[in-house]
């Protein structure tokens, strides 16, 4: 009798395991998919870039100051694209970090619950606006009604217009990540500061912000990675001229905008112009990945302090 039951359950368990093995294998494949994506990205970018570097030496690519793939005299110096990316990203951060940080301080340390319950969803909506829409906003509103009268510029495309739209895009991100970091600061630290006679301003600025600093830095880094990789705003609003300049009132083309420009047109597959997209893409990938990993490391340190 006991043997029978044992036998039965052994068989049953075996059947179940047989039936569930494919399921488990499938779940495992799903987890593998994310690794596959990364591997795919690296291979695709490397392969295209290597072909490109057979035509254009790496050194020339990295140090050249002329980017003219559409001219008869093709020049592939990435510095104009790189400088445009840097100028626009940092201009966007110069807007988003102070505004986002102040918003976070207000929401975390000052705002009554009622105000918070309005501001937070509005910021979420802003965070959900597609970037093509922000690009439209840049050329139909920011450029003509803010930048043109202020700096009497002529061109409908300026790096600054794109940067401002990008700043708007990044505000919710900086605000919400910084606010999370500030809310993670234990209440006991605030009490300790109040108890020696600090006012709310001092508690916010001298205790909470420094204690949340690594979280805030991580937020700024993640915003930087977003800015560097953002494509549509710059494609629409910053112009399509590779311009080695630091003047944000001029049109510029970023790395991402160049990629979009080439792939949007009907570029012949296999040509050096097509391959250049992968070289620029590889550079972009390396930048965003490094910034992201730095942000993760900073964030990990922050969690270490308060967990």
């Amino acid at each position: 009798m006991a043997n029978l039951i044992a036998e039965y359950s052994r068989n049953r368990r075996l059947r179940q395991r047989m039936r569930e093995a494919p399921i488990l294998a499938f779940l495992f494949m799903c987890a593998l998919a994310s690794i596959g994506t990364t591997v795919g990205i690296v291979i695709v970018l490397l392969e295209g870039a290597l072909q490109f570097f057979r035509e254009v030496p790496v050194f020339e690519f990295l140090t050249g100051t002329e980017w003219t793939p559409l001219f008869s005299n093709k020049q592939f110096g990435v510095l104009p694209l790189l400088s445009a990316t840097v100028v626009i990203s940092f201009a966007a951060l110069a807007i988003a970090v102070p505004v986002g940080l102040l918003t976070a301080v207000y929401l975390s340390e000052y705002a009554p619950e009622g105000v918070r319950s309005i501001v937070k969803p509005v910021l979420e909506v802003l965070a959900g606006i597609p970037t093509v829409v922000l690009g439209y906003f840049a050329i139909s509103f920011i450029n003509p009604t803010i930048i043109k009268p202020l700096f009497s510029t002529e061109t409908p495309f300026t790096a600054l217009g794109a940067a401002m739209a990008m700043g708007v895009m990044l505000i919710p991100m900086v605000a919400s990540l910084s606010e999370d970091a500030m809310r993670a600061v234990p209440a006991s630290l605030r009490e300790g500061a109040y108890a020696v006679g600090s006012d709310r301003f001092q508690v916010s600025v001298k205790v909470v912000v420094p204690a949340a600093l690594s979280g805030i830095v991580a937020a700024a880094l993640l915003a930087l990675a977003r800015a560097v990789g953002e494509t549509m705003i710059v494609t629409i609003a910053a112009g399509s001229i590779a311009n080695f300049s630091a003047n944000p009132l001029e049109p510029m083309q970023t790395m991402t905008a160049y990629i979009a420009q080439v792939v949007f047109g009907d570029t012949e597959r296999g040509g050096v112009e097509y391959q250049s997209v992968f070289a620029v893409g590889l550079l972009l990938f390396i930048f965003t990945l490094s910034i992201n990993m730095l942000a993760q490391a900073v964030l990990a340190r922050f969690r270490e302090i308060y967990d």
């Binding site: 630290l189 108890a195 205790v207 204690a211």
Partner: peptide, 12 residues
């Protein structure tokens, strides 16, 4: 002045 249940030094 006040001293609290759990020591709460600032992370400085």
């Amino acid at each position: 002045g006040m001293v609290f249940q759990k020591p709460n030094p600032f992370p400085k």
